[in-house]
C-alpha cells in the first residue's frame, strides 16, 4: 500500500506549483492541470516503472505521452518534483529562453518529454508507435498516454483507436481526462460525443472507468487495475472522471479557467486552499 499521506502532500504542493506558474506569466492552462493532478502524481510516483534519469529511448521502463499538451503546468511540476530537472526551473515556465515551453517539446531537451504536443489529436498515434517499438524490442514495459475528452473531436484519434485495437496493441493504456469541458464550454454543448465508453468498446478496446478521478487512492487503484488488463490482446482505455480546476473552489467544474491565469488576489485564495507541504519552488 502506498504512503498516501506523502503522495497527498505532493498533490497539494503540485497544485500550488500549477497556480503559481500560470499566475507568474499570466498565461497557461490551470483548469485541466488541476483536474489531472491526482492522475499525474499517481502515475509518476506509484504506477509507472521508471529508470533513474532520462534517455529518449526509454528502454526497460514504462513511458508516458501527454497528448493534450496545454496542461503542461501539471506535467512540468510532476516531472520536476520527480527529479527529471531542478524544481527551481519551474520559475522559467513560458519565459523566453526556457526549456519549459507553453506546450511541451523535445526541442530544448527538457528531460522527461519525448514528443511535442499541443496541436491536438496526435499523441495516441505516437504512443502506439512507442508501444510497437517496445514489442519489437521485446521490452515488456507499458506505454501510458493522456488525452482530453474534447481532444477526441480530432479525427486522428479515431484512426489511432481503430489501429490499436485492430493490431492488438495491448501494452498501451490510454487515459481520457473525462471532465466534460473544453475551451468554448461543456463538451456536450460544443460537440456532443455521445457514449465514449461504448465508442471505445465498439472499436475493440478494453474500457474501464475511474469514477473518482480526483481521489488519489481511487486513481492509484484504477491505474493498477488498468495495468492488470494489459497483455490480453486489447489496448486499455481508462475514462478518468475528473473535475476541471479541482482543488481551487472558484475554478472547479467550469471551462472558464481552461486557459486563464488567476490575478494576485485569486492566487492568494487558491494557495490558501492548498497549504504548502513540500516547499514552494
Amino acid at each position: 500500500m502506498p504512503d498516501t499521506q506523502q503522495l497527498n502532500d505532493l498533490v497539494t504542493q503540485v497544485r500550488r506549483d500549477i497556480v503559481r506558474m500560470v499566475h507568474k506569466v499570466n498565461s497557461g492552462h490551470p483548469g485541466g492541470s488541476l483536474g489531472c493532478t491526482e492522475f499525474f502524481v499517481a502515475l509518476y510516483n506509484e504506477v509507472m516503472e521508471l529508470n533513474d534519469g532520462f534517455d529518449m529511448d526509454g528502454t526497460g521502463e514504462d513511458l508516458f505521452f501527454l497528448s493534450n499538451g496545454h496542461i503542461s503546468p501539471i506535467f512540468y511540476s510532476v516531472l520536476a518534483r520527480k527529479g527529471y530537472f531542478p524544481v527551481d526551473e519551474l520559475n522559467t515556465f513560458r519565459l523566453i529562453d526556457s526549456r519549459l515551453q507553453g506546450h511541451p517539446t523535445t526541442h530544448e531537451g527538457l528531460p522527461g518529454v519525448r514528443v511535442s504536443s499541443g496541436s491536438l489529436g496526435q499523441g495516441m498515434s505516437v504512443a502506439i508507435g512507442a508501444a510497437l517499438a517496445k514489442k519489437l524490442n521485446k521490452d515488456n514495459h507499458l506505454v501510458f498516454s493522456l488525452h482530453g475528452d474534447g481532444e477526441l473531436q480530432e479525427g486522428q484519434n479515431w484512426e489511432a483507436i481503430m489501429y490499436a485495437a485492430g493490431n492488438k496493441v495491448d501494452n498501451l493504456i490510454a487515459t481520457i481526462d473525462y471532465n466534460g469541458q473544453q475551451i468554448d464550454g461543456a463538451t456536450d454543448d460544443v460537440l456532443p460525443m455521445g457514449d465514449l465508453k461504448a465508442k471505445f468498446k465498439a472499436f475493440g478496446w478494453d474500457v474501464m472507468e475511474i469514477e473518482k478521478g480526483n481521489d488519489l487512492e481511487a486513481v492509484i487503484a484504477g491505474l493498477n487495475e488498468a495495468k492488470s488488463r494489459t497483455g490480453k490482446g486489447k489496448p486499455v482505455c481508462v475514462l478518468l472522471h475528473t473535475i476541471m480546476g479541482h482543488g481551487v473552489d472558484f475554478m472547479m467544474g467550469t471551462h472558464a479557467w481552461h486557459g486563464k491565469a488567476p490575478n494576485d488576489e485569486q492566487l492568494e485564495q487558491a494557495l490558501a486552499q492548498n497549504a504548502e507541504t513540500l516547499g514552494d519552488y
Binding site: D57, I128, A131, A160
Partner: peptide
C-alpha cells in the same frame, strides 16, 4: 495522419 504519428513513436526505442 496516424501513420506519421506512429512513425514518430517508433523512433522512441
Amino acid at each position: 495522419a496516424n501513420m506519421m504519428g506512429i512513425a514518430a513513436g517508433l523512433t522512441i526505442g
